[in-house]
Nucleic acid binder design. Structure first.
Lengths: 200, 200
DNA sequence: ATTACATGAATGAATAGCCATTCATAAATT
DNA sequence: AATTTATGAATGGCTATTCATTCATGTAAT
């Protein structure tokens, strides 16, 4: 069996298992079983349990970053860019619900214990939001007094929390487009009614 | 020693320890040590480890809900209400950074494993946001086509993520007021420049 | 073509360490 | 002295990780 194949089989099994049980309650044997591989085999491809989580995180987030960059590269309008980012994020999370969970786990749990931080694909990812905002500020369409580093967090947080509920989904009949529309409306124009002055 | 005293001593010790090490890597003996109590004593006040976490969560979030309700009760303007909510949340999280962490842990980690859900103070809390929005929509100052249940999540997510970084704070020299101002600006009026039509 | 040998991947039972929980015993309080 | 509260060492269960062994494939010698 080809090596690469097994590596990725384990990665995707782990994604599934971590998402379902959480990192700490997931057993190596669960992952092994899910990947249809012996327990020991996992240690041929990963150093330890945490290494699996980190790999899942970095690799999968890496893919998303790459895809997002590609999608954005052909767009110049900061407003459209934010729209693309939003839809892309929500679609990715809906498609791979397990990944959404893993991101949340890794982000909030484990780096508390193990300080490694490698390349940190994640800050790369939120950095994309910051860049969109900065670009819009240069163009002049976004408010200049918005701080990009606060805004990127706020917007990521909003996206993330909306996706979280998706998973824990007791509900959410909304489509990606509906949610994206709501988020973009809020973030771009706010929830306040504009004073109706622009009627000619 | 008074019983109630010991109960709350354990709660606050646990808050500290969970925040620092995360639920799963925190040891009962850590909590006991922090509370200056014997390991066994903890089991006189709580059923098990998870019960401690849940108690921390429910009790502390409960306090915040109560305080927030009180602060809001004397205010009618939905715009001011959101402002109050925002500042109150950020202050509470800054004051009790540990609690901010525990909320995140509980929210995203553990209820995956143990389904209990008791009263769920948390939905009560986000419900406050939803109510503010609905009220503003009735008054007519908030856009009618914003869905309160999406908006509440988005806004809570934004607040929460901003507070998270606070803790992991590698930076954040911002004051509560600055951050609140930024979030409110974004959420109320958006990041887009208003088309400058309201100059008379 | 067949056999013998080599290599490295894969296995999964055994190990070893950790830590939540219990409980016999000891204060402390009534 | 009876009862309540507290202690912390001992127990027991759990699971990450290891490693001796097997298996599969390739190479070379006959």
């Amino acid at each position: 069996m080809k090596a690469e194949n097994k590596h990725s089989k384990i990665i995707s099994a782990a994604t599934k298992v971590f998402a379902k049980k959480g990192f700490f309650t997931a057993r190596i044997s669960d992952i092994a079983k899910e990947a249809k591989v012996a327990d020991g085999t996992i240690y041929l491809y990963f150093n330890n349990k945490y290494d699996i989580l980190l790999s899942v995180f970095e690799e999968e987030v890496g893919k998303i970053v790459e895809k997002t960059d590609k999608l954005l590269s052909s767009e110049e309008d900061p407003k459209k860019m934010l729209e693309i980012f939003t839809i892309q994020h929500l679609m990715a999370m809906k498609k791979n619900k397990n990944l959404a969970e893993v991101i949340q786990i890794e982000l909030r749990q484990t780096n508390k214990v193990i300080k490694d931080y490698r390349n940190n694909k994640f800050s790369e990812y939120t950095g994309i939001i910051a860049n969109i905002i900065k670009k819009g500020q240069e163009t002049g369409i976004y408010k200049a007094d918005i701080k990009a580093d606060i805004a990127k967090r706020a917007y990521f947080g909003a996206l993330d929390e909306v996706s979280r509920v998706w998973n824990a989904s007791l509900e959410t009949h909304y489509t990606v487009e509906e949610i994206a529309d709501q988020l973009l409306t809020m973030f771009l124009t706010g929830i306040l009614h504009k004073p109706a002055e622009n009627t000619p």
